[in-house]
Design a protein around this nucleic acid. Structure first.
Lengths: 340, 340
DNA sequence: TTTATTCATGTTAGCGTTAACATATTCAGG
DNA sequence: CCTGAATATGTTAACGCTAACATGAATAAA
């Protein structure tokens, strides 16, 4: 049954198969599929039928090789388990898909080294564009990006250096603003809890520090960070550690809503009244933070819009047009709720 | 600066460029990179250096076209914002990556139609294997899968019909077991809240119904379902609706932990004592459910292991070997906690 | 009617890589 | 010193598709 002639497996239907079937040349089939307006109505119909009948599926590799276009875009995010990036991915998909681009999603797991490897691998696909998170890349990765000369947009963060296209908001400002908000509310002994310690977390931490220093209220022992990924459980554990290390805090700035929720739960368990004894603020505006008791103050970040705008800018770049702006600041929104 | 000769862009470094650079033939470079043991030590070293120097990146399209292998695997999941699938994806990545396979991730958004389109698109990549969620495909998608004759493993659910390779657990049984557990605890008026209404949700609902019918306690008005995606907020809203419709419930089976958390929050707001006045059970064993107050009873599903096992089975199939079993039931684990 | 113009299709070649089959070259064993 | 096997490299063609140019037919303009 299974013969083994050289390079002649019972392989898939090709363009020529379809062409032979109706007695025209392969290029005509190609045109009928890619630029239908160049083929006569009648023939196009016959071709469509034959394609259907024979179950023809174009071969992307061949197409990409012949046309030097892959119609695919590499998207590198640090995590798939973080809602932030998932929302961004959804937006990118919603923008690129209608334009006929395929996403190649890579999960760097917050590691620049892993990112470099992914980049190397995905460049083999000859992507027409690249969407990448932040600016924290290995030197080799930067070189790769540069020499590949493929349109690239950086997401989530903004940069002053160079004119790399980017869409995001100022992580520093948002951290500063949330701390400032807590100060204005009258809190004086504000702690900072962080996980993951990616560049964006660190920048928010800087904003936190700057605000407190300005007010003459910065105390290093109120800062607690752990490199492991963020989770509700970690939030609970960090609160316990914080209360040992700095029992006099009157507010906690959690670097994201997972941690904040964990802190809230642990406070409930320890009978700490929120916000009377301790105020809690989170970050990212996740669904759950609006519904907890008390609801959690947080910073809503425009992650969906970032995805939309970054993808739109990339489409411009890939089309060879200059985008309206190469640096788009989408800001953030402080949501003051019952926990502060 | 930017000349435009036909088909001669300042294109990327190719194999022949590297070959010319050191004066050997292209195939030797190819071998040095793919089957290093076939090339002499000295030459291999020189080739590696040249590759480095010239920044050579292989062209996947050409490779795939010439070798009829794409070294990529299509993975279709219903959602990227659902932790369940994200964990599964992580496991798949951890298994396929070391074996040299690339993942092409497709998000079907719980729509069989979207799935069919994605499948069609991704088949153009000539994937060596396919991982797909469940068995709920359009007829056209089933035909595609069949005629493509590419090794395929179904995840999450098990089937009795046919011998399609699958890895998962019985959704029906898990729904039945959780309901049975609540019955054994003495609850008699058990409600069921569901969102999304994908096939797996429906099967758990069937399990719930069967258990209650057996006990002669099934009441349709205690079942509440909404097609919109699951979220904490939706859980809160569904509880409100449930209390209007069936105020006498003594327990709620939430089809997943998001909903359960929303229900818990809403109960707190309405001063309903958990579990004294109302017991709550969730599904999927998410992080947060272990830390809430009270902690939530839930069913832990082996989503990481499902990914692992499915990917491992696919590797076997792609290697042309027959896997040990083509139907792997990984079970589930009931986590009884304070909310029941 | 002739010529220019559009429209519809075809021919040829090449994208970058690897499979399959050579062809040297080296080395061991008799 | 010769033979046969192993080792190291090369030649050729093909994978499936599309860019670029070419051709023939139909239509419009002169």
């Amino acid at each position: 049954m299974s013969e083994r002639k050289p390079r002649t497996g019972q392989s898939r239907t090709t363009l020529s198969d379809v062409a032979n079937h109706i007695g025209v040349s392969a290029i005509t089939i190609s045109r009928a599929l890619n630029k239908p307006e160049l083929v006569s109505e009648a023939l196009r119909q016959r071709i469509d039928d034959a394609v259907q009948l024979l179950g023809y599926v174009p071969n992307r590799a061949a197409r990409s090789l012949a046309s030097a276009k892959s119609h695919s875009v590499v998207v590198l995010v640090p995590s798939l388990s973080n809602t932030v990036f998932v929302d961004t991915l959804a937006a990118i998909h919603d923008t690129l898909h209608p334009a006929g681009y395929q996403m190649l999603i890579g999960d760097t797991r917050y590691s620049p080294q892993a990112e470099e490897k992914l980049l190397r691998t995905y460049l083999e696909y000859n992507p027409d564009g690249i969407l990448i998170t932040g600016f924290d890349h290995t030197p080799a990765a930067q070189t790769l990006l540069q020499t590949a000369a493929i349109p690239t947009v950086h997401m989530m963060e903004l940069t002053e250096q160079g004119d790399s296209p980017c869409v995001g908001f100022s992580q520093y400002d948002s951290g500063y603003a949330l701390t400032r908000f807590l100060l204005d509310k009258g809190y004086r002994r504000i702690a900072f809890l962080a996980a993951q310690l990616d560049p964006r977390t660190l920048k928010r931490g800087e904003g936190y520090r700057a605000a407190l220093r300005e007010a003459g209220l910065y105390q290093p022992h109120r800062e607690l960070a752990e490199a492991s990924p963020s989770s509700v459980g970690l939030g609970s554990r960090l609160l316990d550690r914080l209360l040992l290390q700095a029992p006099d805090c009157d507010a906690v700035f959690c670097n994201n809503d997972d941690l904040a929720l964990g802190v809230l739960f642990q406070c409930q368990r320890r009978q700490i009244a929120i916000p009377q004894q301790l105020a809690i603020a989170g970050f990212n505006g996740l669904d759950a933070s609006a519904w907890s008791n008390p609801s959690l103050t947080t910073v809503d970040t425009p992650r969906y819009d970032i995805g939309k705008a970054a993808a739109a800018m990339l489409l411009q770049l890939m089309a060879g047009k200059a985008p309206a702006a190469t640096r788009v600041d989408l800001g953030y929104r402080l949501l003051a709720r019952d926990s502060t």
